[in-house]
Design a protein around this nucleic acid. Structure first.
Lengths: 86, 86
DNA sequence: CATCATTTGTCCGTATGTATC
DNA sequence: TGATACATACGGACAAATGAT
């Protein structure tokens, strides 16, 4: 689906809905990266801020974990127990 | 010339203007490398992102070609014909 | 062969300014 | 006024390619 700039729902929420559905459906598997910010910007025609807001929602929902310089990954059981001190 | 952070024109565009002029004037000859990202960052006091945005403009203008691990070079006639499969 | 420095590639983290609704 | 969205810019982390040693 595409994002509608004129919809009632904010674009970043439309995007987090979209990605969240992809995770729950298994399209994005645990431990695997979801598309990068740059990819999502291009695919959906939105600004980086908007993508990042969507990511923040997904993090708050516990669906993904983000690693600086690496990417954002679908959360696994390993991720939830602790901050993986190692 | 130097880059003015307060100018109307974005810094990355000022930089691409500068380098583009250098190429067209012959200061940078075809096939020769233009300064590395690190050099341009230091010389002009800008961030790497800004340098890279300027490079992207020059590539879009067909003025340069960039090679991973090598550098960015002023485009030659050889460059334009194909992707140099070799 | 391994190692290292250099350089570009790909990522996210953060901040500011502007504009719109 | 506040939420949303875009553009710009600086930082920082990590990866990959290259060339020299």
């Amino acid at each position: 689906m595409t994002i509608d700039p004129h919809a009632d729902r904010a674009m970043y929420r439309q995007l987090s809905d979209l990605l969240g559905a992809g995770i729950r459906s298994g399209k994005y598997q645990p431990g695997m990266p979801i598309p990068s910010e740059a990819m999502l910007m291009e695919r959906h025609g939105v600004a980086r801020n908007t993508v990042r807001l969507a990511m923040e929602v997904l993090r708050d929902q516990g669906l993904v974990v983000t690693r600086h310089g690496r990417g954002t990954f679908v959360r696994t059981d390993e991720d939830e127990s602790a901050q993986n001190i190692a």
